[in-house]
């Protein structure tokens, strides 16, 4: 499985969103809708609170002004994990991580089991629930623009430069630089650097992201008593269990064979004993049960 050290991904691209710069204008949403030629929004039943749906790949999440002193807007879209849970979960392998850094979905392979939706720690993949034959829909980091060597449309559209696009390595440096130059403003943490094995889309914030973005953070892990997993990607966490299965296949089947042989021998020995003493009551009892 791929990991942070995967050489193929060393030059992978990513996005960095500075939460303090976002003004919530939704230009990125508009650009995404235009670029992907997305149809009208679904009726509200198929739209979740965070605004993402089968027809919206990105959205702006706002903090509840009633609850928080600081109102912040954050872009929500696929984080394009370095070791994606959806990729490991998909039973036909419809997801792939491109060297570009994007996690792409192949609709031609999908069977519609929705396991990727269950597996995604950020709850990003969406489903076309109103279609008789539905597909998974999610942000693909704008494959068309990337193919031409350009930026994703949402990044170009951002008027304040809250979202920037570039090599993940460079973005990390930019983020560190920003934290260094303005330590009073930012929380000293780059969300996405290590979360779930690292993500290609990262966030820099002055407010905890689990409140604004409803993103699972380390506190969440601590609360759930799985803190040892906080820095690991989900695939690497469950990987050992996957390889138990082939071992189990060999072990159980051969074990059963051995048990059968052993029991057989014992039964045969018993039978021989019985044959030598005809009129044994055991045999009669056996028949009675039927």
């Amino acid at each position: 499985m791929s990991s942070v050290q995967n050489p193929e991904l060393s030059n992978s691209k990513g996005m960095l969103t500075d939460v303090t710069k976002c003004i919530g204008c939704e230009r990125c949403v508009e650009a995404c809708v235009r670029q992907n030629k997305l149809p009208r929004e679904f009726p509200a039943k198929f739209k979740s609170d965070d605004g993402l749906s089968g027809n919206r790949f990105t959205s702006i999440v706002k903090t509840d002004a009633a609850k928080a002193d600081l109102v912040r807007m954050v872009r929500r879209h696929c984080l394009h994990c370095i070791d994606p849970a959806c990729l490991a979960a998909c039973l036909v392998g419809a997801f792939k991580k491109t060297p570009d850094g994007a996690v792409e979905y192949d609709a031609d392979m999908c069977i519609g089991c929705r396991y990727c939706m269950l597996a995604c720690p950020f709850s990003i993949p969406r489903y076309e629930y109103n279609e008789p034959l539905p597909y998974i829909r999610k942000c693909k980091m704008n494959d068309e623009c990337r193919a031409k060597g350009g930026k994703p449309a949402c990044v170009s559209a951002c008027p304040t430069g809250a979202t920037i696009y570039g090599r993940r390595k460079d973005l990390l440096e930019v983020a560190r630089e920003r934290i260094k130059s303005n330590p009073d403003l930012y929380i000293d943490h780059i969300y996405g650097e290590k979360e779930f094995g690292g993500t290609s889309v990262m966030y820099l914030s002055d407010t905890p992201l689990n409140e604004t973005l409803k993103m699972p953070t380390k506190t969440e892990f601590d609360r759930l008593r799985v803190s040892s997993l906080a820095q690991k990607s989900i695939p690497s966490m469950v990987e050992p269990w996957v390889w138990v299965t082939p071992v189990q296949f060999v072990a159980v089947s051969s074990g059963l064979g051995v048990i059968w042989l052993y029991r057989r021998k014992k039964l045969l020995a018993n039978q021989n004993n019985q044959d030598s003493n005809p009129g044994n009551e055991n045999k009669g009892g056996d028949h009675g049960n039927r």
Partner: peptide
């Protein structure tokens, strides 16, 4: 599909 398109990393597979 899963009979021909394999992803042995998947539990569902």
């Amino acid at each position: 599909h899963p009979f021909f398109m394999w992803n042995p990393h998947s539990f569902l597979f």
